[in-house]
Design a protein around this nucleic acid. Sequence first.
DNA 1: ATGTGC
Length: 481
Amino acid sequence: MSIERLKRIDDNRLEVPADYKTGMRTKGIIYVDNILEKELEEESIEQVANVATLPGIVGASMAMPDIHTGYGFPIGGVAAFDLKEGIISPGGVGYDINCGVRLLRSNFKKDTVVPKLKELIEALYNEIPSGVGSKGKIRLSPDDEEKLLLKGARWAVEKGLGDVSDLEKIESGGCLEGADPSIISQKAYERGRSQQGTLGSGNHFLEVQYVDEIYDEKIANALGLFKNQITVMIHSGSRGFGHQVCTDFIEVMERAIQKYNIALPDRELACAPFNSPEAQDYFAAMKAAANYAWCNRQCLMHWTREVFMSVFNVSPIELEMTLIYDVAHNIAKVEEHIVDGKKKKLVVHRKGATRAFPPGHPDLPVVYRNIGQPVLIPGDMGRASYVLIGTDKAMKETFGSTCHGAGRVMSRHQAIRQAKGRAIWREMEDRGIIVRAAGRETLAEEMSEAYKDISNVVEIVHNAGISLKVARLRPLGVIKG
DNA sequence: ATGTGC
């Protein structure tokens, strides 16, 4: 097994041949150019091949340029399965169910915010609960929690956190139908109760940014973006709740593979036939966790708006901090795609991959119907983030998917070692970026050098045509967990 | 990612 056995399809794609490994039902395709090809881990190639052995896989086992090794499935992976012959797997979604990103616009320009940046970041840090195991200002009764799991972001809006108009700018309207609170474990309920409305830790962040480059004027304009404008990006997920749901169902799936006699090259691929009770229970629990995450990002956004209004003493109308979009990048969804010329429903797993639906798709908000789905790609805290737009080519090639972020090049441990004796916060401040982090080692783990250059990643998906660059955002201030 | 792992 090695990289020499991969075949270059074109400048942006490598093929993992179907004979790379015994049991593969289809080939693998990895979106990398000859630069990021060098960063490919052998283990993650193996994982792309492993996914190709799963029953009912449709099309190729795919991976985006931010691929790295994950639990069973690679992070950056996209895999679609037939509803009758295929499976669903918690490892294909990931531990942080519906980890995702939302982007807010504003009427402010860089010049207005920079003089008050320290005060702003301090205020945001005080208002946004962050860090491992952090508790929020929301305390849920068991009844509240159940409603939240059914309603998603709408639950927060009904509590006065945000506006109804926010909902249409969230993927799936901020709520997946069919969540079932009755199959959530007590443990998950307990962990979820105090963590709603918290940022989390690791690569989760809240970032104040400015638009530094526009690649597509027409689309940027349609999204309400302009040069030097202040934007806010929020990257968070379903916290301990989603983590517990994943843990609970990996156990269920480990029994299911015995019961249904599914042979796997790696037990971390544990799964169940999509139409089995085990799979349907996982899917309904995953939806509950997805709804928990959308509600979480909705709460974080609301407090962000409040902080901006208070620090700059402006009204909502003056600020016009509207939601541009909210994407999920760890999720499984039933979607309609064209397979061999025919419309077919599939269960698409995106694990560290972002949906990138094209112009005209019925699932897009009416206001974006003509331009396509906004794709939000966070980079590391020192470099940049990107806004892209979904394309027809993505729909044809990748089941409407693209990359989700930079992807690590250093393990957390390696990063901590490299950062020893350095003051990362000061290095950042020297570059004009104010950072505040809850965890003692978070800044070391999250420093720029620990990640691939996001520009390289985005260049590949842009050149491959599976999403197109609209704007680049530079960080000014960051809140980390 | 995570009431962080051996």
